[in-house]
């Protein structure tokens, strides 16, 4: 971790070498984060670029209080949130039909690749996608989500439910019709 202190300092001083190193260390993971929030790869690349530019301009204010990775991840999430806020007016409020909930059994989890799941998330309507990501992937509470997205907690909850419903259906479509069994591991 000592190396990180120097790396952070050098990045703050604007050293290209250090910036390149930081980018190469964290960009694969952060690209993964951006892909989850984006509608496609091109939007994710855009977010990644914007996010890292923010990282480099704000790294002076990083105070070693949390992990560097967590801090960078938070910036990426914020960039994605900002994008959503800017484009919000373009989206209709409820832009998807309500899916029936269908649940999948646990025995095929191993068959699903991460790329497949990522595609499914990317295909979600923007708001569902955001709520699902923030709640499930980045551990935010409905209260926090409501604040960040300027919606009510109720809306956040219902959006999450719908996102789950859609994802469940997509999983089913791709891996056959398996009806819900009660032997889920959760």
């Amino acid at each position: 971790m000592e190396d990180f202190d120097k790396l952070i300092k050098d990045c703050a001083a604007g050293k290209q070498q250090a910036q390149a190193r930081l980018y190469h260390l964290f960009s694969p993971k952060m690209y993964g984060v951006c892909l989850r929030y984006a509608k496609d790869a091109s939007e994710a690349e855009d977010s990644l670029q914007e996010g890292f530019l923010k990282v480099f301009t704000k790294i002076k204010s990083f105070r070693n209080e949390g992990s560097l990775e967590g801090w960078i991840r938070r910036i990426m999430v914020n960039v994605s949130l900002e994008k959503y806020r800017k484009q919000r007016l373009l989206y209709s409020v409820e832009d998807v039909s309500i899916y029936d909930k269908e649940y999948h059994s646990g025995d095929i989890i191993s068959d699903i690749s991460a790329n497949d799941l990522l595609d499914m998330i990317q295909e979600l309507p923007p708001r569902y996608k955001l709520v699902f990501n923030l709640y499930v992937m980045d551990g935010m509470s409905h209260q926090e989500i409501a604040k960040e997205m300027d919606i009510t907690e109720g809306t956040s909850k219902s959006n999450l439910a719908r996102a789950r419903g859609i994802l469940q259906q997509k999983v089913n479509q791709r891996f056959g019709e398996h009806r819900v069994k009660t032997n889920t591991k959760a």
Binding site: H24, S27, P28, K29, Y31, G32, L48, Y103, L118, V136
Partner: peptide, 27 residues
């Protein structure tokens, strides 16, 4: 609740550590 958590877990477990090298032009 269990079902909800189940679908959450599929995504969470598979995607939390998901990494992909971004295209070079981004850098």
């Amino acid at each position: 609740m269990k079902e909800d958590k189940y679908i959450d877990r599929i995504f969470h477990d598979k995607l939390t550590d998901y990494e992909k090298v971004p295209p070079a032009f981004v850098w």
